[in-house]
Nucleic acid binder design. Sequence first.
DNA 1: TTGTGTGGTTGCATTATTAAACCAGATACC
DNA 2: GGTATCTGGTTTAATAATGCAACCACACAA
Lengths: 158, 158
Amino acid sequence: MVKRTSLAGDACPIARALDVFGDWWSLLIIRDASLGRRRFSEFQASLGLAKNILATRLRALVERGILKTVPASDGSAYQEYVLTPKGRGIFPILVALRQWSEEFDEHPDEIATILVDRENGKPVKKLALYSRDGRVLHAADTALKPRPATKRARRVVP
Amino acid sequence: MVKRTSLAGDACPIARALDVFGDWWSLLIIRDASLGRRRFSEFQASLGLAKNILATRLRALVERGILKTVPASDGSAYQEYVLTPKGRGIFPILVALRQWSEEFDEHPDEIATILVDRENGKPVKKLALYSRDGRVLHAADTALKPRPATKRARRVVP
DNA sequence: TTGTGTGGTTGCATTATTAAACCAGATACC
DNA sequence: GGTATCTGGTTTAATAATGCAACCACACAA
């Protein structure tokens, strides 16, 4: 069996996230969903991917709890795909990706849009990582520690 | 020619970022590099991917300015791969992915590590998006605006 | 100088992606 | 009511990417 590697059982949370939506199209579907696109045909027109791939991805994202299907909002018998809370939780990742391109892309003039505060139309701040006591942390200021054991795990009587 | 779709010319900065390191292995290589792994064999042992795939990915990441090769730090004639500033800029994306898994993974007990402040060993804060004036912004509080035209573009004399 | 480790490349089998054709049910049109 | 068209897919066949194992050149160690 020479299947594509799965990262599902990995202990690294980054790998685990990639296992859920780390393929070529899933994040773009999620981006579209967070922009308000809901219908199969909307995704297909926006992304220009083959319909069978879109169908596969939508099914996987629904299975994994990122999207859910709801009855169409226009009263027709069709269904729509909307983000679950778990799916909306991906928003910071999309913002981080966007800000990386804004900072490091070689042709930033080709970027069409900027992310702004809806209240006043001003660009948002750059994401930053903070310590408990409010200092900005860079990669070198951080470390990985083993996760403390969960208290809730109840021991089975032998 | 039925090639895999490229997102390089896309106007969306998220798509542009995914075009650079959005494939199955690149982000994991970058994660490893940011943990201090530098040698081909270290990446291969850590990730367990085929050597030809690793070679292809490393070459692509070097071409795209995420990694650069340097002489081995132990004085041998081999080379090592280290992150460029552009590569280190991916750190917030890794953090966002990690935090998403910490919050939404169905088996969080399988996550082995937590990210802490090196100063005091305490867990870092959750990434949050802020407005210019310091309010926390969620997806619904934001909007996309067309990017203002760049002033620096000089007109060619006709 | 013989042996071993590093850092790949090559070849082949398997899997994933793609485009295009097809299709059933829902909707719109007359 | 009957026909045409739209929506949301599935199926098929070709091409590209991935995975594994074998191989290989060079560095290094004994």
